[in-house]
């Protein structure tokens, strides 16, 4: 068993991941994921993907469906437990430990990671039996132990930010898809996470409702939230991302600023992927 145990790989920065001018000198990355590897049975889904995200950065992960980008994102908060690799968020380090996944000390650290990484799902996953405000304060009260009054004040601030404060006592079933996703964003923000993970947040939405969600996300990006966004929205990636990762078959084929990866891709796989968007008449 010894020779099988995972070895913590040394985290190496991709040349394009040098901290930008807006990152304070001496700041540590908010999130470092090193050599994330995932096997589903015989299926090698992630082949050692690494990422570094500095405070205030928004990065987008692009890639065709089945490339592993969602699995990668879900590995960052251990909704998928990776087979190998290490995740460090805000100083909390959790390594893959496929032989002792359920160890209670490890599960505690995974919860620490999750409290620092807010997640927004493709299917919203609001709690249908709870009102909008209750959806937002449930975890702050019952996970972080924040007093209800305080939690509600925080939640109301973020509901106002996503433009849905007047819906605070509605139930999710009475909201449109776009409103539900904005509530889901407010719910994630009420935990006051260090980084937000978005898993194709607009893919389940009616096309007319995509804009209101992207607008909220762009606002968050511009005010300096740290965000990792798995998306097919090229315009959003181009406009809001500090850096774009193109994933192909479980590894990052190309990393760089959007002007490079989207406008002038070097890797033939990125080129091929993007050419299909251009033929559909996307801007740029």
């Amino acid at each position: 068993m010894k020779q099988l145990s995972t070895t913590p790989a040394v985290h190496a920065l991709h040349p394009a991941e040098k901290p930008g001018v807006l990152v304070k000198p001496g700041a540590e990355p908010v999130l470092k994921a090193t050599n994330i590897t995932k096997w589903f049975g015989e299926n090698h889904v992630l082949r050692g993907a690494s990422i570094t995200v500095w405070p205030g950065e928004t990065v987008c992960i692009l890639g065709r469906s089945g490339s592993g980008k969602s699995t990668f994102l879900r590995s960052l908060n251990f909704l998928e437990d990776p087979t190998d690799g290490t995740v460090e968020i805000d100083g909390v380090i959790v390594g893959a430990d496929p032989f002792h996944k359920e160890g209670s000390e490890r599960q505690d650290r995974i919860r620490e990671v999750r409290m620092r990484a807010g997640m927004v799902f493709q299917e919203f996953n609001l709690f249908p039996h709870l009102s909008v405000i209750e959806n937002c304060v449930e975890a702050p009260i019952h996970v972080k132990g924040i007093p209800r009054k305080e939690a509600e004040a925080i939640a109301e601030k973020y509901l106002a930010k996503v433009g849905l404060l007047e819906k605070r006592d509605e139930y999710p079933s009475r909201l449109s898809g776009g409103q539900r996703q904005r509530v889901a964003i407010a719910r994630a923000l009420t935990m006051q996470p260090k980084v937000l993970l978005f898993d194709e947040p607009t893919s389940a939405l009616d096309p007319t409702l995509v804009g209101e969600v992207l607008k909220v996300m762009a606002d968050l990006a511009h005010e300096g939230r740290t965000m990792i966004v798995v998306t097919h929205e090229m315009d959003f990636a181009h406009e809001a991302a500090d850096r774009v990762y193109y994933m192909d078959q479980g590894e990052f084929a190309e990393v760089g600023p959007p002007e490079q990866v989207i406008d002038a891709p070097k890797d033939p796989r990125t080129k091929e992927f993007l050419s299909r968007f251009r033929t559909l008449g996307a801007k740029k």
């Binding site: 919860r111 999750r114 409290m115 990484a117 799902f121 996953n125 449930e138 019952h142 994630a188």
Partner: peptide
């Protein structure tokens, strides 16, 4: 109860028992 409910609860840092009781 859909799997997404468990995932949302877990992603918010809830333990298994909290997620069961509350969600």
């Amino acid at each position: 109860v859909p799997l997404g409910q468990r995932e949302a609860a877990a992603a918010l840092g809830m333990s298994g028992s909290t997620a069961f009781r509350r969600i």
